[in-house]
C-alpha cells in the first residue's frame, strides 16, 4: 500500500506493537530514575552521575533512547498522516505531509544519536 510508505515497519500491526513495547520501556525507565532520585540520601551531582554511570543503566538508557525515538516516530507518523493530507489541505497535502515528516525524521534521528552519546558516554 502506497499510504504505508512512511510508517516505521511497513505494517500497522508492527507499528502498533512497537508503540506499546516502547511505551513500557519508557515507563520502566522513568519509574527507575524517579525511584533512584527519591532513594538518594541527598540530591547532588555525584549521586546523579552515579545513577547513570553503571553499565546496566547505560544499556537500559540506550534502549530507552531507541524506544523514545521509535515511539516518537510512530506517534508523529500517525498524527501527520491523519491531519496533513489532501482531504484536509487540498492538493498540496501530500507534499506538506512529506516535508513535515522529513523534518520530524531529522529531529528524531538527531535525538537518537545525541541521546545515545549522552547516555552511553555517561560512564
Amino acid at each position: 500500500m502506497v499510504t504505508n510508505a512512511t510508517s516505521l515497519g511497513r505494517s500497522g500491526l508492527f507499528d502498533w506493537l512497537v508503540q506499546r513495547f516502547s511505551a513500557l520501556v519508557l515507563l520502566a525507565w522513568i519509574a527507575w530514575v524517579c525511584i533512584g532520585v527519591i532513594a538518594m540520601p541527598e540530591f547532588g551531582y555525584p549521586q546523579w552521575r552515579a545513577l547513570f554511570a553503571a553499565t546496566p543503566m547505560q544499556i537500559f538508557s540506550l534502549i530507552t533512547v531507541l524506544s523514545l525515538c521509535a515511539h516518537a516516530w510512530v506517534g508523529v507518523w500517525t498524527v501527520t498522516t491523519d491531519y496533513l493530507n489532501e482531504a484536509h489541505l487540498g492538493r498540496t497535502g501530500t507534499a506538506i505531509r512529506l516535508c513535515t515528516q522529513a523534518a520530524c525524521l531529522l529531529l528524531t534521528l538527531t535525538c537518537l544519536l545525541w541521546g545515545a552519546r549522552i547516555f552511553w558516554g555517561s560512564g
Partner: peptide, 30 residues
C-alpha cells in the same frame, strides 16, 4: 493525548540539552 505527544516530541532536544548539561560536570549540574 495527541497534543501532549506532539509537544513532548518538540521538547525532546530541550530535554536532552538539560540532561547533557546536568551529567557533564559538577558546574553543568549546578
Amino acid at each position: 493525548h495527541r497534543i501532549s505527544g506532539v509537544l513532548l516530541f518538540l521538547a525532546m532536544p530541550l530535554l536532552l540539552y538539560v540532561f547533557e548539561m546536568s551529567l557533564s560536570s559538577e558546574a553543568g549540574f549546578r
